[in-house]
Computed example of a mutant assay.
Amino acid sequence: MSATAQSPTADREIVISRVIDAPRELVFGAFTEVRHLSRWWGPEGFTTTTRTFEFRVGGVWDFVLHGPDGTDYPEWITWTEIAPPERIALLHGESRGDPNAFESVLTFQPDGTATRIEMRTVFPTRELRDEMVEKYHAIEGGRQTLSNLAAYVAEIVRTRAEG
């Protein structure tokens, strides 16, 4: 296998990364409590309403993502791996048992005093990945979500510095 060989899931995945100017423990922590997630999760203009939230392996986050146009999107996440403050793996669909659910792995790496977060999402099929990119703008939405996360943790860092 050459150094340039792609992963076997490359045609079914989306990878988005960003450097966030905050310590890794803080960035990781923004995923662990609904009071944090509800402030930044989702693309620009979206809000969330949580029905259930339990951050543990096998735990569930059942919520509705509200689009700026008034469309509601039922969402369901279960955590499959949690390794603080380095890694979170999850299964994400519209509901439990969703045949189109996709897997995401988030990694948190120190980058000086900042954190490099990478979100690697693997879809069941290439067609589903392509539909999520074309119809639902998954890449741009993912970038906006990480931008919202960056702004949220920057606010926490600023508040702590002032306090």
Rank of each mutant, 00 (worst) to 15 (best):
H137Q: 15
S17E: 14
E131S: 15
V157H: 01
R35H: 12
D98I: 08
G59S: 03
Y152H: 14
K135L: 14
P110I: 06
P85L: 00
W40H: 08
I88S: 07
F31H: 15
G112Q: 06
V64T: 15
W76C: 09
R51C: 02
G59F: 01
Q144M: 05
T9F: 11
M132L: 13
E54W: 01
V15Y: 04
Y152T: 06
S147G: 14
G29E: 11
R129L: 11
G97S: 06
M119P: 05
T49R: 15
P68M: 03
P43D: 02
A101D: 02
G112Y: 03
E127G: 14
H36A: 06
T113P: 12
W61L: 04
V34L: 08
M119L: 15
A3P: 05
Q144N: 00
V34F: 06
E155A: 15
A89D: 14
G97P: 01
F102K: 09
T4W: 10
H92S: 14
T121I: 10
T49Y: 02
D98T: 08
D69R: 02
S104I: 11
G70E: 02
E94C: 14
Y136D: 08
W79M: 12
E81A: 15
I88G: 08
T121M: 15
E103S: 14
F63G: 03
I156M: 06
T50W: 01
